[in-house]
Amino acid sequence: MRQIFLDTETTGLSAADGDRLVEIGCIEMLNRRLSGRHLHHYLNPQRSSHPDAVRVHGLTDEFLADKPLFAAVVDEFLEFVADAELIAHNASFDVGFIDAELARLGKPPLAAHGCTITDSLLMAREQFPGKANSLDALCKRLEVDNSNRALHGALLDAGLLAEVYIRMTRGQDSLVIEVSEEGGSTLEVAAIDLAGFELPVIAASADEQAAHEAVLADLDKASKGRTIWREVMA
């Protein structure tokens, strides 16, 4: 299973209004383990960034002026993400900007390159309904260290997202215990089909049944005969 954790930074909030990519970061995971491969580029957007966007990512027009155009890295990017599951937080935003850049170059959208898209924000909202589910909030909730995230950065955020995703989905396919990055080991426990097991049923003894009845009688007395289990048992 090949997954790519993807994040972008942009000049503003609307690809439809001409905002462009200024940074793209991708981190590869194979079978729920980081492979060590990543792709990262700062990009010249050929337009100024909105001041609010600069406050978020810190990438000034001056810094980006000598960076490559998206057209110069598009083939490398498409080769890196081809036929993978792309996981992004608020994926419609990142994918929308990338598809807009591809359209400018006359290339088909990401979905046409064998990519499937998973939105980790939707996953988080389903898993933690009614709670804040920004990347920062998830890092705090799932105990992922994001102390180096003074500003947003595509590669940094993609790495944080990979850790958040693993913790959100831990145990769905296997139990993975990471001991350390330096020569450490992992422990995997394969899924076990419990359908063939018969669980023993141990009947309560007469003394246990009598003690249980005494507790129920006390509760029944305290509730003035309004105990629901009596009605259910009847």
Rank of each mutant, 00 (worst) to 15 (best):
R55F: 12
N31F: 03
L34H: 05
E28S: 02
V232I: 12
L105V: 07
K221H: 04
S180T: 14
D220I: 01
H113T: 01
N44C: 08
E76N: 10
G184I: 05
K224L: 07
L39T: 01
F77L: 12
L86G: 00
A150R: 15
S147Q: 03
M1H: 08
E79R: 12
F70I: 02
A72N: 13
V232L: 11
G153V: 06
G106C: 08
A84T: 06
L86T: 02
S180Q: 02
E213P: 12
L160M: 03
V81P: 00
L43C: 04
L78I: 06
A195V: 10
V95M: 10
V81I: 09
N133V: 01
F77G: 01
A214D: 15
A91I: 06
E231A: 08
L160K: 02
G96E: 07
E181Y: 13
S205G: 10
R230I: 09
G114I: 02
E208A: 12
L151D: 01
H89Q: 09
I192W: 07
L199D: 04
A162C: 12
V179D: 02
G159P: 00
V189N: 05
A190F: 02
N44M: 03
V54K: 02
F128C: 08
K140Q: 13
A162D: 02
E188V: 03
E182K: 15
